[in-house]
Design a protein around this nucleic acid. Sequence first.
DNA 1: TGAGTCACG
DNA 2: ACGTACGTGACTCAA
Length: 891
Amino acid sequence: MKKWMLIDGNSITYRAFFAMPPLTNSSGMQTNAIYGFTTMLLKLLEEHKPTHIMVAFDAGKTNFRHEQFEEYKAGRQKTPPELSQQFPLLKDLISAFGIAQYEIAGYEADDIIGTLTAKADQQEIETLVISGDKDMLQLASSNVTIAVTRKGVSEVELYSPATIEEKYGLTPQQIIDLKGLMGDTSDNIPGVPGVGEKTALKLLHQFPSVEEVIANLDAQKGKLKENLTNHQQSALMSKQLATIFREVPLELTEEDIVYNGYEPAKLAEQLAKLEFKSLLERLDVTASSGSSEADAKQALSELTIHHLSEQSLDISKLMSALAEEDAKHGLYIEAIGENPHHASLEGIAIAVGDQVYVMQHHLLDTEELAPFKQWLADESIPKYGYDLHKAELVLHWHGIKLGGSYFDVQLAAYLLDPTDGNQLLHTIAERHSLYGLPSDDEVYGKGAKLKLPEQSKLFEHLAVKANIVRQLAPKLDEELEKTSMRSLYYDLEGPLSRILARMEQQGIKVERAELEQQGVELEAALKHITSEIYELAGTEFKISSPKQLGEVLFEKLGLPAKKKTKTGYSTDAEVLEELAPYHPIVPHILNFRQLAKLQSTYIEGLLKEVREETGHIHTYYRQTIAATGRLSSQFPNLQNIPIRLEEGRKIRKAFIPSEPGWSILSADYSQIELRVLAHISGDERLKDAFIHNHDIHTKTAMDVFGVTADQVDSNMRRSAKAVNFGIVYGISDFGLSQNLGITRKEAAQFIEQYFSVFQGVRKYMDDIIAEAKEKGYIVTLLDRRRYVPDIHSSNYNIRSFAERIAMNTPIQGSAADIIKLAMVRMNDELQKRELSSRMLLQVHDELVFEVPPHELETMKQLVPQVMAEAIKLDVPLVADVSYGDSWYEAK
DNA sequence: TGAGTCACG
DNA sequence: ACGTACGTGACTCAA
């Protein structure tokens, strides 16, 4: 038996959009309407098992109703961009479901559906119409049932002619008359003033149609009669507007809307793209069909897994497979622990073709596995893997060398979308329609519950990972090609990952005694301050608890509360500085905070990270975290060692060369971000300032205030400096006013003044936002990409944030590109010149080396030169160099 | 685990 | 009328 299902796509999507919470995918795009639509569709499919389905959409802005009534649907809120963005993806998803969709210029979805139900009536086909709009009730018949959504889209209410009769006492055709009389504000259909649903029903129970009501006006009285008399035309026109047109010239046959079910692979791909994980699981759709468990089994069954052990060490097949001309492998090194310098090595898996070999690392010391160990170390063999940077470090600490250029799927995935946080292998896999890999959390548990499964299970998991890596590598390579980021990967990030690993293995020597001595002094000072604070407060409390501190300051001592946080009073440095004049306790608090920070984070924190054996601190640079392309540093973070205040700066005295007589040499770019801005904006004045090597903040002050160099006082320079910072961050008057402690108006004037002088910069800011809107992403000098979906948001705050990101990322990101380039070049130079100086640290615009005495002269000249020449810009790049016996002296 | 705070570029 | 400067990581407290 045939059963048609006809869905009003626009109406359902609207309902879903407003009914569902604002679900977004990882790139920030809202997907709630699609989600709502999909859950509803699934429910309907299950409950009604249709043989034919069609989803109808409105096409174009106007239709024939506008010719009848210009004001039709006027005054409607514009469709929010968060919703209109969802339509293309929704349409893709409907296709993936194997469901027909249709739209035709000049008609609305109702008309398409009306035309089809007319056919259904002719041929007596059982049909279900789904809409969020009660107008559709006019289509009900003995064959056609109307389902109207309730409570968002999770439930529907079914209407047959009988239920319509029961509820309204009307026939389906009279629904049109009902609307003719009462109108419809959402479509701007006027109807008759003063006539709502109740009155309209009463009238229609008296006379069966608008025409009859009008013909019998004398039966009414008072205001109602007057309104009906004066608005006869309106009522008739409204009726006409509300009438669904049932003779649309459809180029659509019954054949076209047959529903044969969906292809799981196609559907899974779309659902994965939308990141509808729960639906993926619920549907049990995967690329290979069946449940995710079945999928995991399939992923395994396609593989032959060799668990190497003392009893089976034959790798001759593996080695010959790896040696084949275009053999593609996948390498997976499993380490447990976030810090690669301390992580445990749980297993090594390598996939070639459909064969996977898994082993514990200690087997590499056997004679039989020597060829594989050598293969791992071979610098001339490229490796395809996942997070090989971490793997190299973990292997290093286990006495195993990993060499060769890397193609790293994690790093590639990061470049393809640097905002996408973790880049977990199973997420990358699903995004590329490879299913069956459970997440590490599922296999290992997380947090306190972390526990490795028995070895055969663990090895199976590693085998699947290695195999997934093998399959992913070419796909990601292709995507890099499509997004013009191949060069960024192969010439910059790939080589850099190996350089970073080397810097991390080397570490930087730290003099424990220096830190310990400073710690003792801090301890004494803190003790002293603590007792003074208790005395002034008249009570003892936890000074480092913002909650307790707030209570003491604002309740006990009655100081004026300035700012509030979500949880209570704000007590940050900005607030405390303002409070300083009110009470002598305040400066002590500030002092306590400063010293406590030094003690806990920099003295105790760093001491914990010094390796017993070497006396070195080994940080871990993360290459796949920062959305702008910068590095980040962990365990410990060596990119935020104090420098601004002398007390903290002393920490740097503990960072020393690893060999006696050597020096620490540091070189940092001067104003790299503003120079990058001068280059990419092409602003003549800004370029000119750098070409003539002016002090940029003074020059800005001169230009903005229209004065000569000697008229610029320190206050003017300070303001100009803040404006320059603001420009780099994507300026706002509020931000600048906060920073300078001036009014918003004054800040706005500064900004306007700045832009009127630096017109090229203004144009850059406007253009980059336009570009972000048009393309959906912005790029850096080396084609690094960042998507900014929020640029279309209708929410002012969200959109403004996206705009600042669009302005800032090309600047910060290009600066990151440049210093990374300098690192690769510097590494080449050190090798080529056979220098024994070592690159140790990177701090965004600074490179730190340790240098033997006889290379000092060379390095003093070479490092700034390589940094300055890393890239050719329209303005010169300048790097300043300094050196000394510790990082402190290298200033 | 999240919030608040603060260190850096 | 709204409320923000851009990018990070580590520590402490209090649920």
